[in-house]
């Protein structure tokens, strides 16, 4: 069974069909990229899967259970982690407390009124921080961190509920080329260790073609291509959508890496 299976998912805003009969699947342990030009419907699609938007029609099966229309927190509780396009933390907490918050919620302990939270799940939080390379910063106020570090904290938070599926909305947005690769390498290592499936959207083609196991391409609300990096590179329709001509991704990849 696929970890995530999307069937004929649709959403219209007014008269515009932002997502139109989209279907795809994410297999266990797969690192799947969803790309497409601006306005292709990636964000809409993403927000329906994470519960931010309710679809007009279609099914979203997570491990066989339909999660379409559920609220984000329920989807999270089922075992789906997520990171945001613009990373941020709970600004009034330390780095460790941010991770502890997610652990407390996962353990269903947030309504506890008595035990001091500072010591609860601290070891596990430090362990997660160790894995994203942020153990040293554990007791610093999280709002003091640099943006690249905030991204790492967010990753530690996303792993706190031991998700089987991780949704990452443009994980490298706003980062430089080297930082970008380091972060994705880290993500890839962590999810492979845990056998977590990942669905991510991305604008940086260098990242997509270097790391994704498989790529699906959205344009005007529809899936126009689905395959590995080589297949997507050679797909005439994809080239058409991105460049309007027969240019290839070989060039774009090198340009992307340079920028």
């Amino acid at each position: 069974m696929s970890v995530l299976a999307v069937h004929s998912l649709s959403k219209a805003f007014g008269g515009v069909r932002a997502v139109n009969e989209v279907g795809f699947a994410v297999e266990r342990g797969e690192f799947l990229a969803m790309i497409g030009p601006n306005g292709a419907g990636k964000s809409t699609c993403f927000n329906m899967i994470n519960g931010q938007l309710a679809p007009d029609s279609g099914e979203i099966l997570f491990e066989g259970k339909n999660i379409a229309g559920l609220v984000p927190r329920t989807i999270w509780q089922l075992g789906v982690g997520r990171t945001f396009q613009v990373a941020a933390t709970f600004g009034s907490m330390t780095v460790a407390e941010n991770v502890q918050m997610a652990l407390l919620s996962h353990a269903r302990e947030i309504y506890s009124l008595w035990r001091p939270a500072g010591e609860m799940h601290r070891e596990r939080a430090l362990d997660l921080l160790e894995q994203v390379g942020m153990r040293e910063a554990a007791d610093r106020p999280s709002r003091e961190l640099a943006y690249g570090d905030v991204k790492r904290i967010e990753l530690a938070i996303a792993l706190a509920n031991e998700p089987r599926l991780l949704l990452m909305d443009e994980p490298t947005a706003g980062m430089g080329a080297r930082e970008r690769h380091e972060l994705i390498e880290l993500v890839k290592r962590l999810v492979v260790e845990r056998n977590i499936s990942v669905l991510f959207t991305e604008h940086s083609m260098d990242v997509v073609f270097a790391f994704a196991d498989r790529i699906i391409v959205l344009a005007r609300g529809r899936v126009i291509a689905d395959g590995d990096a080589a297949a997507i590179r050679d797909n005439a329709q994809v080239r058409e959508v991105y460049f309007g001509t027969g240019k290839t991704f070989a060039q774009s990849t090198s340009q992307g890496a340079a920028s």
């Binding site: 918050m101 919620s105 506890s112 009124l113 035990r115 001091p116 939270a117 500072g118």
Partner: peptide, 8 residues
């Protein structure tokens, strides 16, 4: 406030 509830 120092309990998980306050943090939440």
């Amino acid at each position: 406030l120092f309990a998980p509830f306050g943090y939440a």
